[in-house]
Amino acid sequence: MNDSQLLRYSRHILLPQIDVRGQEKLTQSCILIVGAGGLGSPAALYLAASGIGKIIICDKDNVDLTNLQRQIIHNTDAIGEPKTASARRTLNHINPEVEIMTLQEPATEEMLVHLLSSADAVVDASDNFATRHAINQACIIQKKPLISGAVVRFDGQVSVFDLRSADNPCYHCLFPLSGEDNDPNCAVMGVFAPLAGIIGCTQAAETIKVLLGIGETLNGRLLLLDGLTMKWRTINLKKDPACEACSSSSARASNDGG
């Protein structure tokens, strides 16, 4: 690391759990963020500020006036332009050393599998179940950690699905595809703006912990926040041996044969 980097990241380097070696690992890491909205904004801001070497941002939408209440990576001047372009500009201002790659297109499973081949982890900041399940499937295929978050109204949730180990639960174990006909829509249901920041920042923190192998991550735990009472709850998660997404092909074949 050069002198400028030692100064920029000095408060991380002072932490014995990170130190110079850990910070160097962050600068060599690549993170995929799916969604540049309420969750993706704070997650991207803190990951860039923390010195992640490369950040890939995927979002198909343009900035709208209604986004600005919570999507803090965008500003009023960005209304009408792609969220990916707005996010890249903001992140470049925060930390020009970070390489920002953007994709303004829907996140398909095929595309995600390709991107994850070179990424170390993915932050799921999407807003619909179809995309979340596509991300989950890509992470299973590529054996990559998934840092998942969601907010609606005053309720937030965050978890880590560390799919580097086949023994860990996946997103589908928690939220099976069956029965999910409608996505919670913040345009109809609303969302408490600071809650998006809290959950998105938690995703950034969990991502850094996953990359460095420090502390105890939320793998195997779902953290729930009631923004009205500021009460946190934790639900322990277990792998579903009959999960259609992450169970072994032999187990699926056995279930089909039964």
Rank of each mutant, 00 (worst) to 15 (best):
I56C: 11
S10Q: 13
R164K: 13
R233P: 14
R8D: 08
A166Y: 00
H114M: 08
N128I: 01
Q71W: 12
G197I: 03
K25R: 15
T84Y: 00
L223Q: 08
K60T: 03
L222K: 09
V160K: 11
A85Q: 10
L115C: 08
E99L: 07
A138C: 13
V152S: 09
I31M: 07
I94G: 05
G53P: 08
R70M: 05
A121Q: 02
S126L: 06
D59T: 01
G258T: 09
S41R: 05
S159V: 00
C186Y: 08
C243A: 14
D155Y: 13
A166N: 11
G258A: 08
E110G: 10
L116F: 03
E97R: 12
R252M: 11
P169K: 02
N255D: 06
S178H: 07
E99M: 07
L68Y: 13
P106T: 02
A253F: 06
A138S: 15
T131R: 12
L103V: 04
E216D: 12
S10L: 02
E206K: 08
L228C: 06
F192L: 15
K83F: 07
S178D: 12
W232H: 15
F154E: 00
C246V: 04
S148M: 05
I94M: 09
S254P: 11
A78C: 15
I31T: 12
K25N: 05
L65C: 03
Y9P: 13
R11L: 03
C139R: 08
N136Q: 08
P184Q: 05
S254Q: 15
L39D: 05
E206L: 10
G200N: 03
L68G: 14
Q5W: 03
M101P: 03
T207Y: 06
K239V: 10
G35R: 11
A119D: 01
A187T: 05
G22A: 10
V123Y: 06
Q104F: 01
C30L: 00
A125P: 13
P176D: 04
T66I: 06
A125D: 05
G37K: 13
S50D: 08
L146E: 14
I79R: 09
S41E: 04
M1C: 09
L174S: 12
P184H: 08
D59M: 05
G213S: 11
G190V: 00
T27F: 01
E216Q: 15
A166M: 02
I147P: 14
I72Y: 07
Q17S: 15
L65T: 06
S247W: 01
R89C: 02
L116G: 07
